[in-house]
Each structure stands twice: as structure tokens, then as C-alpha cells.
């Protein structure tokens, strides 16, 4: 059964790696719903957060292919309930509408929107949250002359993750520690966290 999975990839910071990772999906004609790159708590380690809609088996194989890339340190995949995740969105609305129709302002406040810029002609709001929340807000704003809208890729933190510091130390050893075996997931087949 297909569902939403978030793949977290820890990598070296290297030109061209984005392409190497992206083509693992495109070669199999798998659509990437969202992709974010970010630094991590460890210096020089980068993090890709990729969201796709696929079966777990496909996702597991994709992660193996990703981990196979020379500059990839580790790839994990998780379902939504294993994650804290957020997306951010910016909305541009005509300022006069906002000023006139208090309803809109209240609505925005209820949704936890924040004003980023107010100009005579338009106001820019920002929200962050899950995609559904963002989508309802767009729907709500549309009748009020939403001028422009943009949403970021998902960023996610794995609930059970202890960060990458310790793992990185193991990677730096030329003789890797026992935990750093590529088939560690085999011991935890029912827990999805580690693979």
C-alpha cells in the first residue's frame, strides 16, 4: 500500500550529490513530493529531507540505493507518525481587504499566521504547520484576493533520533563500530526507524 514516507539522508556536502540522489527517484519514475536540503547539528554534514508517496518496500530499496552513493552517510525512512514535521508558507493578500474585513484577520490569527510585511498595497503572512492546515488557509484566503502563495518543502525531525553526532564519530573511524553495520535494520525489522 502506498503512503507518505519521509526519507532523511545524511551526506557530505558535495556538488552534484543532489543530482545523484534525485536520479535514483527519476530513474524509477517516482515523483518527489518535496525535497529540502539543510545543514545539520554536525559541521560539514548535510541533510536531505525527501517526501514521497510509495510502498514501504519501494522506499526501503530506494534508501539502499541512496546509501550506496559514496558521499551518503546514512538514509532513514519514516512514516508521518514517527516524525515531527512542518512546512512553511507565505501568503500575499491585498492590504485593503485585510483592513476592511476584520474577519480575515481573525481567521489568520486563529490559524497562527504571522505578519511578515505590511505595505499599502499588500500584506505578507507566514504560517507553518502541516500541509492540510496550509491548504485550508489557502482555500480560506482565495475569496479575499490571495495574490500570491508559496510553500516550502517539508522539514522533519525523527522522534526517536538521537542526532547524528555519535554516528558521525563512528563513520570517522576507519574500522567502523559494530553498530555501524549496513544491515542493522535487520534486527529491528518491525521498527521502521533504522535501516
Amino acid at each position: 500500500m502506498k503512503k507518505e514516507f519521509t526519507i532523511t539522508v545524511y551526506t557530505e556536502n558535495q556538488v552534484g550529490l543532489l543530482n545523484r540522489i534525485a536520479i535514483i527517484f527519476t530513474r524509477r519514475k517516482i515523483n518527489i513530493d518535496s525535497l529540502n536540503t539543510s545543514p545539520t547539528e554536525s559541521e560539514n554534514v548535510h541533510r536531505f529531507t525527501i517526501v514521497i508517496n510509495e510502498t514501504e518496500e519501494v522506499v526501503r530499496k530506494l534508501c539502499r540505493q541512496i546509501e550506496k552513493q559514496v558521499e551518503v552517510l546514512k538514509a532513514y525512512y519514516n512514516t508521518n507518525d514517527e516524525l515531527i514535521w512542518q512546512e512553511m508558507a507565505l501568503y500575499k493578500v491585498p492590504t485593503d481587504v485585510i483592513a476592511e474585513k476584520v474577519k480575515v484577520e481573525r481567521l489568520l490569527r486563529e490559524k497562527g499566521a504571522r505578519v511578515v510585511v505590511i505595505r499599502k498595497d499588500y500584506t505578507v503572512f507566514e504560517t507553518s504547520g502541516h500541509r492540510e492546515e496550509i491548504e485550508t488557509l489557502i482555500k480560506t484566503l482565495e475569496p479575499f484576493g490571495l495574490i500570491e502563495f508559496v510553500r516550502t518543502a517539508r522539514i522533519a525531525i525523527i522522534k526517536d533520533s538521537k542526532g547524528f553526532h555519535e554516528k558521525l564519530k563512528e563513520f570517522e573511524e576507519s574500522q567502523p563500530a559494530d553498530e555501524l553495520i549496513e544491515n542493522e535494520y535487520l534486527n529491528k525489522q518491525d521498527e521502521v526507524f533504522t535501516m
Binding site: 557530505e12 559514496v70 563513520f171 570517522e172 559494530d178 555501524l180 549496513e182 544491515n183
Partner: peptide
């Protein structure tokens, strides 16, 4: 070269 930290040429034998 005989070590690249992100590259594990051989999985550990279990």
C-alpha cells in the same frame, strides 16, 4: 586513499 568516511565498501560480516 583507504578510507572515506561516508563510504563503506564492505558491510561488516555478521
Amino acid at each position: 586513499s583507504d578510507h572515506i568516511r561516508s563510504y563503506r565498501p564492505k558491510p561488516i560480516v555478521r
